[in-house]
Computed example of a mutant assay.
Amino acid sequence: MTTTLSERVSQSAFDGSMLRVVLLMDLHEGAQQQFFEAYEQLRHDIAAVPGHLGDQLCQSFENPSQWLITSEWESAPQYLAWVNSERHVEQVRPLGACARTMRPLQFTVLRETGKRYEEAALPTRGRLQPAPRLGAGIVRHALTFTVKPGSEKQVADLLSSYASPASQVDEHTRLCRTSLFMHGNRVVRTVEVQGDLVAALRHVSQQPEVRAVEEAINPYLEQSRDLSDHESARMFFMRAAVPAVHHIAATGREPAEVTRHALFYPAKPGCGPALAKFLSRQDEA
């Protein structure tokens, strides 16, 4: 199969661009006052987080139960440092209790237009990309979690023994491959997708064989989870999700069989984002 470069914009979480985060929520009936109180507490807490620039609370005028919280951040690593912390988990828990559904979305800011931006002296303006980067439209998503020491072999056998799900998700989305890595008792699972990442992850999670394996490894996890419980599942994915990365370029002939390798970099405490940024720039170059 020959892979050709398609006209698709590809993003990186580590290029220093400004980030806009959107949280879509559908509230439980009668939960508005509780929601306001939770939001007021959260916005005061988040104001002190490094990299946070501001936020907005919006309500749909078509459906009063639908709410939107948007926030702007100086860069993705600053947001990710907060959102992947246990502090964040505790801070957003009261907000999640008010909602039937919550869906967070993250967007890199590519352009700013309009009078408000022209007059504002934003320190992040220099971080806007001079030109979009093009890639093959392939996104790699990863989850990482730890298992109880001594259970590594059982977990590896479970995670590598089930049949792969169908690769074609819909007419726009294809599951390219999945990979599994282990270092000690830490598991890293990656999924490569061409098209809609969310649709592909939903497709994988709905497969009976995948669901059975997830249930089978639950007793071995260091941090318990219940994927049948919405709140427990949300907290698990919040902790386990690694920033999705785009393939900037894909040229030449792809071999029929691909062997995946992993390099483990034990970064100094507090240096993980800097190392990830450095490595992403090396790969892009």
Rank of each mutant, 00 (worst) to 15 (best):
C271Y: 11
P266D: 15
S232M: 00
D229Q: 02
V204H: 02
P255Q: 10
I248M: 12
E209W: 08
A274Q: 12
A274V: 09
H246L: 05
A262V: 13
D226L: 08
T251H: 15
A262E: 07
S232F: 04
N218I: 05
V258S: 04
P219Y: 00
S205G: 13
A276V: 08
T251S: 15
F264H: 10
F237E: 04
T259Y: 10
H261L: 13
V258R: 06
P266I: 11
H203S: 04
E209N: 09
G270L: 03
Q207G: 10
H203T: 04
R225E: 02
I248P: 03
P273V: 08
T259V: 15
L221Q: 00
L221D: 02
A276R: 13
Q207L: 10
H261N: 09
P219N: 02
E215Y: 01
S228T: 06
I248Q: 15
Y220S: 01
I217S: 01
P266A: 15
A267E: 08
I248H: 14
H247D: 12
P255D: 03
S228V: 05
A274W: 06
P219V: 06
P273F: 10
P243V: 07
R253W: 03
P208Y: 12
S228C: 00
L227I: 05
V258Y: 05
R239T: 00
Y220H: 12
A216F: 00
L221Y: 03
A240L: 08
P273K: 05
A250E: 14
R253V: 15
F236N: 07
A233M: 04
A216E: 02
G270A: 11
I248L: 12
A240M: 08
P269M: 07
H247T: 13
P255N: 07
K268G: 07
V210A: 00
R239W: 01
M235N: 07
R202S: 14
P273H: 07
P255C: 02
H247V: 12
Q206D: 06
A249M: 08
A244R: 05
E214Y: 04
P208M: 12
L221K: 00
Y220I: 04
I248W: 01
V213K: 05
H261W: 09
D226H: 02
V210L: 04
C271A: 11
K268Y: 06
Y265N: 07
V242Q: 11
V258Q: 12
S228I: 02
P266Q: 14
L221P: 00
H247W: 10
L227A: 05
A233E: 02
H203D: 05
L275D: 04
V242R: 08
R260L: 15
H261S: 11
V242M: 10
Q206P: 00
Q206R: 04
E254S: 14
Q223H: 08
V204I: 13
G270S: 05
V210W: 11
E222S: 00
E222I: 00
Q206N: 06
G272K: 13
V210N: 05
S232D: 01
S224Y: 04
H247A: 10
R202D: 14
A250H: 09
V213D: 05
S205P: 03
P273T: 01
Q206E: 09
H261T: 10
H261E: 12
V258K: 09
M235S: 09
A249Q: 14
A267H: 09
A241R: 07
L221V: 00
G272A: 15
A250Q: 11
D226Y: 03
S232V: 03
M235E: 11
E209Y: 06
R234F: 11
A256R: 14
A274G: 07
S232K: 01
L275P: 06
